[in-house]
Design a protein around this nucleic acid. Structure first.
Lengths: 204, 204
DNA sequence: GGGAAAAGTTGAACCAATTCTAAAATTGAG
DNA sequence: CTCAATTTTAGAATTGGTTCAACTTTTCCC
């Protein structure tokens, strides 16, 4: 199955993503013209649209890589969580937030979020929703784990708590990327303060 | 100060907003061409750009009207809240949600939200952030009121709870407008379920 | 190894938002 | 009433994402 055509296809995908990543960073999302991405990737404009439905989908591919990395890093925390509820949540959320600006600038996040609400049915829109869902599920898994260990009361509505925590974190993150001068440390502190209320409510 | 020019200006503003509201509804945001809005409002394209920086700002003006109406309706609840925490929150949030589709379609909300994250520093972006903040403050005011009445424990971090409730509601609302088939009743039920956890945590 | 079908590539053309320009209209101060 | 300042207007020019019909390349089968 690994004919010439397959290899060329994979290669073009990679070249487009590499070119787009560099240009999005340098010139911003709007500033990165499709023409420039095409030129840098050494393909034609038409080819880009053969691989991605629109400009947003290119960004989408980059975002998906970032989020998947974060999900991976989170698995470790779910498997062996810190021995108290507040720290467990803070550690998991910390991983999400601290990794968030590794590959994506705030401007790229803003664009990605905007596109995902603007075109929820586009490939990217659906993928983004799935990623949010995966993060929610990971937080829910952590809550479930803490219930097993006996750190969280068994009679708590775990899925609802998980979604509540994710929604709050996500909204705080949205506001964070909207303000260029906002700092990660402040974001984490604010979320910790909010979660404190939940922690006392659900802790055994 | 109410010369002819002032009145004409106000009139043109109104005509543009009316035309845009109708066309956004009929043709969707993307489908409503500036040219068509200009024609229906009986002004030139240039005039529209003289009144609003861009297409998004026109939508922004409509959103602001809607949200201000909702804020107004919410004041009554804060002044005389239902006599238990869960109902109080549910009533206020119910007002927000039930009014939300009066003037704005889901598609218009999607566009408005997208633009506000995409261009947080545009007039509309800043206005939208201010509206979110006003809603947050109203929820906080309700919590404070409930603390006065003695329905919510005095040692609770009111501002943090208020923000947590708003963020969760807002995120749920975003997901709601992203799915055309999602229903208001389901949205409210889901939020109630999430808030139940907080209610037990903060109730006296 | 040849040739037809399938798959992929290309860039010029299209479309709609936005900007720009110069002319026409309206206002308010004196 | 008159004129300078401000606004509005129409429409041409610009811009950049997206589409499409013609052309290449790859594959596959004999």
């Amino acid at each position: 199955m690994s004919g010439l055509r397959e290899r060329q296809k994979a290669d073009r995908h990679r070249r487009i993503i590499d070119a787009a990543t560099a240009l999005f960073r340098d010139a911003g999302y709007e500033g990165a013209k499709i023409e420039a991405i095409a030129a840098q990737a050494e393909v034609s404009i038409g080819t880009i649209y053969n691989y991605y439905q629109n400009k947003g989908d290119i960004l989408g591919a980059i975002v998906a890589m970032e989020v998947n990395e974060v999900l991976n890093a989170g698995r470790g925390v779910v498997a062996r969580p810190p021995a108290n509820v507040g720290d467990a949540l803070d550690t998991l959320i910390g991983i999400y937030i601290e990794h968030s600006l590794n590959y994506l600038s705030k401007e790229m996040w803003r664009q990605a979020m905007a596109i995902s609400t603007q075109l929820p049915d586009s490939p990217f829109g659906q993928a983004y929703t799935a990623l949010d869902r995966a993060l929610t599920d990971q937080i829910r898994a952590l809550i479930a784990r803490l219930q097993e260990i006996g750190l969280v009361r068994a009679d708590i509505d775990g899925p609802a708590v998980g979604e509540l925590i994710f929604n709050n974190m996500n909204m705080m993150f949205i506001e964070f990327v909207k303000r260029d001068e906002a700092m990660i440390s402040e974001l984490r502190a604010a979320i910790r303060r909010q979660n404190r209320i939940l922690v006392t409510a659900i802790g055994v």
